[in-house]
Amino acid sequence: MFNALQVVTTVIVGLMVGVEFSVAFVINPIFKALPEDSGQLARSHGGRMLGAVMPFWYIGSLVLVGIWAAAGWHHHGTGLVVTSGVLLILSVIMSVLLLVPINDQGKTWTPETRPADWKQQVNRWDRFHYVRVAVIIAAFVLLVTALT
């Protein structure tokens, strides 16, 4: 049962990392290259869609890592799992304090209602997101390392 928990947790965190990596390095660059207002409209839609799912994915991942750490307290690699959990906590804090406020505004924008500085806000969100992606990649690497 413990092995199943380890595998499920690692897969769920890994998929989350993959989605967030894809947003940073594939999806958003595609959106930036779209003509006229299409990119901003696409980001607004993406913000609504992923904004509804990602909080559960982040918290769910954190809960699974916490269960793994508690259940495997005396197993090899628990320190790595705990450190991974700390990084996931950091990613949640970053999300709530830095990214969600921008996303909450951006997901309501239309070409008619967006603020004059919308591009600067989008770029700010992207910079914060790059850091968050690095944090969750590190958390994922620690989980994979704990499996070995």
Rank of each mutant, 00 (worst) to 15 (best):
F2W: 08
A4W: 05
A4V: 09
A4E: 13
L5K: 12
V8K: 02
I12W: 12
V13F: 02
G14F: 01
M16A: 11
M16V: 03
G18F: 03
E20W: 01
E20Q: 14
E20K: 02
F21N: 08
F21E: 08
A24W: 05
F25Q: 09
F25C: 03
I27H: 11
N28S: 10
P29H: 12
P29F: 06
K32I: 09
K32H: 14
K32W: 12
A33H: 07
A33V: 03
A33C: 04
L34G: 12
L34C: 13
P35S: 08
S38P: 04
G39S: 13
G39D: 14
Q40S: 13
L41Y: 02
R43Y: 01
H45E: 08
R48C: 00
R48Y: 01
R48I: 01
P55V: 04
P55R: 07
F56N: 06
Y58E: 10
I59N: 07
V63G: 03
V63D: 07
L64E: 06
L64Y: 00
L64K: 01
G66D: 09
W68K: 04
A69V: 00
A71T: 08
A71E: 11
G72Q: 04
H75L: 11
H75Q: 15
H76I: 03
G77S: 06
T78I: 00
G79Q: 09
V81N: 13
V81S: 10
V86M: 07
I89T: 15
L90R: 11
I93D: 14
M94I: 04
M94K: 04
M94R: 05
M94V: 04
S95H: 15
L98S: 13
L98N: 15
P101M: 13
P101A: 14
D104V: 01
Q105C: 10
K107P: 09
T108Q: 12
W109M: 11
T110S: 07
P111S: 06
P115V: 02
A116R: 11
W118T: 02
Q121T: 13
V122I: 11
R124Y: 05
R127L: 07
Y130M: 06
V131K: 11
V131L: 13
R132M: 03
R132A: 05
V133Y: 10
I136K: 05
L142A: 12
L147I: 08
L147S: 13
